[in-house]
Structure formats: C-alpha cells, structure tokens
C-alpha cells in the first residue's frame, strides 16, 4: 500500500508538470494556431536563467552581478527563490514576445504546418546556446528544499511533489481567470476567426503577443519544476533530459486536444498515471516489454485514443463543410 501511495503521488506530481507544459502549448495554439516545437529549447533556456540568477549570482546576457542573490555558499530562502522565479518568468515572457515578433508575426496567414516548422527551426537554433550555457552536463537551480522529503505513515514523499502540484494549480487558476478576462475573450475570438475578430476591433497582434508571452512563461515554469530533485536530472537542468522531454508532453496535448485548457490538465494527469503506474507495476515483465518500456507508454496511449477520437478527448472537432 505504501508503494501504491508513493506511486500515485509521483504520478500526480509528474502529471502536474505535464499539465503546466500542456497549458503552455494550448495557450500558444489557441492564440496563434502555432504548435510550439521550440518549447524544449525555450524552457531549458529559462531554467538555465534560474540557475544563473540563483546559483551563479549573475544575470543572463549581462555582466552584472545579481544584487538580490543569496550570499556565496548559501541557498536562497523560499521567498527569495520565488522572487527569482518571478523574474525568470518575466524574462521568459520577454523571450516569447521577441520570438512572436521576429518569427511568428510575419507568418500570419501561412499554413499551420509552416508555422510549426518555424518553431522547429528556432528549437534547433537555440539549442546550441543552451549547451553553451551548461558547459558541463548539469546545473543546479538552487531549490530551497533540495532533496528533502516528508514521511507519512512509512511512505516517503519528496517536497518537490507538492511544489509541482501547487505550481500547476496556480498556473491553472491564472489561465482560468485570464480566460475570463477581456484578453482571454479576445483570444478566444481570435482563435475562432482571426479576420472576424479584427473586424470587431480586436487587436489581433496584441493577442498574439500575449499568447506567446504567457505560453513561454508557462513552458519555463514547467521546466523549472521538472529540474527539481526527484525527476530524471536530479535537481539540475540537464542537457540529457531537458531538450527532449518536451516531446513527452506532445501525447499530453494530443490526448487532451490541442485547443482545450481543461484537456491539457486532464491529459497531463492521465498520461502521467499511465506512465508511472506502468513503470511501477509492470516491471516484472521488463524482459518482454523491453527495457525502458514506460517511456513509450504515453505514445501508445495517444495512438489508442486517436484511433477512437481523432481530435483528442476534449479537442474541437473541425467541422468540414462541403
């Protein structure tokens, strides 16, 4: 039973991170009809900024020292860490704005696929700079709670699990309220029909910008919580893991539907539960399933769901008029 609860907690925590990442994809897709393949490089860059700010006590791109940073050899307290997190998210939003302005805005009206491939190009172009910034294969992001755990009735839960769930909840609530706001309504109108929205006096360019700023910030948020202790790179931004983990989020948004906010959250949790529980409870069949089988569980779930529902569980079915 202890193992069950530990596994469930792990699945929910991983699902929360998938959900944050999924929200990032959905917001950007909803606002600008772009599937953001650059999320991997973008989010890793953001997580590296966090490391530069908190651990190196520097500032990305600029030769200044960070005046807020904790003293040499100390880790940041929770409040200070959150302040830095907010700063990084703001930098991430700025990066989103720049990408939107430089690469996405000129492409308005082009086929969906062309826009998606532009982001693929960005991913390839940004990635070497990430490699450059890590220099060695791992970099800590200076989490105040480190590898600490709680023990409840014999079961052990890393504190990072709760942090991920809290972050996902905050992100979901923020996106939810954003949806109800003026901008959110404008975004949904733009998603429905760009020209009609423009005719109604909605500033489509601004909607694009906001979608990318918000999407980039969410992607970085996901990456930072993925860089905490129990997850693969073990408390670091890692070259091995971070550039590719975004591809594990693709099944999440497909499952939920590319344009559904609720779908991103549900998809994240479902995929994570399948992945983690398969890893935990099918492990005695590894010789049949092959080593590392749990890595492809999300894709298998995705394939099965798509056979039944080609637009995901919550996605809008494209109405095809003849």
């Amino acid at each position: 039973m202890i193992i069950f609860w530990q596994t469930l907690a792990k699945a929910i925590a991983l699902g929360s991170i998938y959900a944050i990442m999924g929200l990032s994809f959905v917001i950007i897709f909803k606002g600008t009809q772009v599937l953001n393949f650059a999320a991997g490089a973008l989010s890793m860059a953001g997580a590296l900024f966090m490391s530069i700010l908190v651990v190196d006590r520097g500032f990305p791109f600029l030769p200044f020292t960070n005046p807020l940073a904790p003293a040499d050899g100390e880790t940041a307290g929770l409040a200070l860490w959150i302040v830095h997190l907010v700063i990084v998210l703001m930098i991430a939003a700025l990066m989103g704005l720049v990408i939107e302005r430089v690469a996405i805005r000129p492409m308005v009206g082009q086929p969906l696929f062309a826009m998606a491939v532009i982001t693929l190009g960005l991913e390839i172009a940004i990635r070497p700079f990430n490699l450059d910034a890590t220099a060695i294969s791992g970099r800590s992001i200076g989490v105040p709670w480190g590898t600490e755990t709680w023990e409840i009735g014999g079961a052990i839960f890393p504190k990072s699990y709760l942090a991920a769930v809290v972050a996902a909840a905050i992100a979901f609530v923020a996106v939810f309220f954003f949806y109800r706001s003026r901008f959110g309504v404008a975004m949904r109108a733009v998603a429905f029909d760009q020209e009609a929205a423009m005719a109604q006096g909605i500033n489509v360019g601004r909607v694009f910008a906001i979608a990318w700023a918000l999407g980039a910030a969410l992607a970085v948020l996901g990456a930072i919580f993925f860089a905490m202790s129990p997850w693969p790179p073990a408390g670091t931004v890692s070259l091995e893991i971070h550039p590719i983990w975004v591809f594990r989020v693709l099944p999440v948004i497909i499952l939920g539907g590319l344009d559904s906010v609720a779908g991103a959250v549900a998809g994240g949790l479902i995929i994570a539960i399948f992945e983690i529980f398969a890893g935990q409870y099918l492990s005695q069949w590894t010789s049949i399933l092959g080593p590392g089988y749990s890595t492809i569980v999300p894709y298998l779930v995705m394939l099965v769901v798509l056979l039944v529902r080609p637009y995901g569980l919550f996605g809008t079915e494209e109405i095809r008029r003849v």
């Binding site: 599937l35 969906l112 696929f113 998606a116 591809f247 693709l250 099944p251 948004i253 497909i254 590319l258 492809i296 894709y299 995705m302 394939l303 798509l306 080609p310 637009y311 995901g312 494209e318």
Partner: peptide, 12 residues
C-alpha cells in the same frame, strides 16, 4: 487524423 495531429502521431 489531420494536420498537426498527424505530425505528432508520427513523432510517436
């Protein structure tokens, strides 16, 4: 599946 959905399925 159509469009981007197909692209992602093939990634899988």
């Amino acid at each position: 599946v159509r469009g981007l959905y197909l692209a992602i399925v093939t990634v899988g």
